[in-house]
């Protein structure tokens, strides 16, 4: 793992001694993609682990945000605007999704008086 992190192309590491050329940021696209992957994995683990429906929803949002970060990074390093425009759509969809999901959770809570996924298992039995 340490060897992987020291892998120079992974971080787009460009060694500049300060004598020639403009200062290039040491952390390039791979660093942003790595961060995005870490965020996505965290959200995924949260969705699988947590029992509270609301927290599961927050972890879903975390996964969406991770994909958003990857899109913006690609857009920036590729020099196109398409990824950034796509982020607008993702934000809109996410807002609508949260509104509908929370309304469903409230309706569920009204009927069952719980938001724990362990107790919401009536389809299982």
């Amino acid at each position: 793992m340490i060897a992987l992190l020291n892998h120079a192309p992974l971080f787009g590491l460009i060694l500049n001694n300060g004598d020639t050329g403009p200062v290039v940021p040491a952390y390039g696209l791979p660093a942003y993609l790595l961060l995005s992957a870490v965020l996505f994995a965290l959200g995924f683990i949260g969705v699988l682990l947590r029992k509270n429906t609301l927290v599961i929803y927050m972890c879903l949002e975390l996964m969406l945000l991770a994909s958003t970060l990857a899109l913006v990074a690609f857009s920036h390093f590729q020099g196109t605007l398409d990824g950034a425009v796509f982020v607008f759509f993702i934000l809109t969809i996410a807002a609508a999704e949260v509104a509908v999901g929370l309304a469903i959770i409230v309706a569920l809570f009204r009927r069952r008086h719980t938001v724990s996924v362990e107790e919401l298992n009536h389809l299982k039995h």
């Binding site: 992987l4 892998h7 192309p9 992974l10 787009g12 460009i14 290039v24 390039g28 696209l29 791979p30 993609l33 790595l34 992957a37 920036h76 390093f77 590729q78 020099g79």
Partner: peptide, 14 residues
């Protein structure tokens, strides 16, 4: 990412 990806190294100057 480390072994397969072909990525632009520097940001496009825009």
């Amino acid at each position: 990412l480390a072994h397969r990806a072909v990525l632009p190294a520097a940001p496009a100057t825009l």
